[in-house]
Design a protein around this nucleic acid. Structure first.
Lengths: 179, 179
DNA sequence: CCCTGCGTTCAGAACGTTTTGAATGTACCT
DNA sequence: AGGTACATTCAAAACGTTCTGAACGCAGGG
């Protein structure tokens, strides 16, 4: 049995990462698995994880594969062992980059593409519209502009975070410049 | 009946905002209601919305109140009308600020608070721990540090966006400085 | 070549969320 | 005050998601 304070810290971290995972659109179990691995100095097997979190082996298997795909956990080969062992990717910066790169980036690019197509559609249809429809088209174009500005902002923020230094850590981001 | 291109642009925008809403952890219906309002030059009544999106009036009522609470839509009083009319908050910057301010900010502050408490717990318990437990406590403190750096980064980014100019629009954010 | 120990899969169960529509509440008009 | 036209609420249903556990697959050892 472990000291009470260690258990408490472990539990609240696991719970907090579960919460954070939901917040980011992942399943809570993924977050808790990640938290459990992060708080373990040694790599853990699927059975260890199922045991610790009291969830089925099947769920652990599926969720760990998802964590692996997201670059949040890595398999560790233990010589002379048949079990699979996992450890958390403990470089949080790397985790963020993985997620932003494979998920948010796509989302933003898709949005910008659709918006661009909409603008084109409106412009090329303009001559075939009644005066009343032209009014509405003009209004639509304003909305498209607003949305484009928003997504371009998002894109810029993403590229800044993703495109930059490999070695960047959170402490080195000092300022977001407005001008 | 409206011109085909206008309908197409309207539909894809509404669908896209529904998608975006899910992405941000809201319900899809909220996003589609917002989109419908955003693409309408005139304010719309609950019945208009229920009719357009083919969802029940009850759902429209509840979701519109949520949109109102999030500052994404405003009620509009039409003289001589008993119906409630809504219009979208079309300043997207304002929408973002509302959401970040009332949701993400809380989340980050809660996380930082819990992390701070964990660090304190570990430090004050240190003398009562066995050497082996002290090893683990040291490991835990490293993880807490990592997480604190991450949330402090998030906090800084939020404060930059929220704390700044009232008049800020997306185009004016030119650069995120790393150094 | 069969056992054993593990991981994976998936149909069904459990669970949570969202929607509906009928009942209810409310404000305005006459 | 009664009637009307709306909004709101909420219990039940529909729906989607996640979990479980038994069945299966697979590899290594004897």
């Amino acid at each position: 049995m472990m000291h009470k304070s260690l258990t408490a810290v472990n539990d609240s971290t696991v719970a907090g990462l579960g919460r954070l995972a939901r917040f980011f659109g992942f399943s809570e179990v993924m977050g808790r698995l990640y938290g459990t691995l992060l708080m373990s100095p040694e790599a853990l097997s699927l059975d260890d994880l199922a045991d610790t979190l009291r969830i089925s082996k099947g769920s652990v298997s599926m969720n760990m594969r998802a964590l692996e795909r997201w670059g949040m956990a890595n398999e560790v080969w233990m010589r002379g062992e048949r079990k699979k062992y996992y450890q958390a990717e403990s470089d949080l910066w790397q985790v963020i980059r993985n997620v932003l790169d494979s998920r948010e980036r796509r989302e933003v690019q898709l949005a910008l593409q659709v918006l661009g197509e909409s603008v084109e559609k409106l412009q090329s249809a303009n001559e075939t519209l009644t005066p009343e429809e032209q009014e509405l088209a003009k209004y639509y174009l304003e909305r498209m502009d607003d949305l484009q500005a928003f997504f371009q902002f998002a894109q810029m923020a993403l590229e800044t975070v993703l495109g930059g230094q490999e070695t960047l850590d959170f402490d080195s981001v000092t300022k977001i410049e407005i001008g």
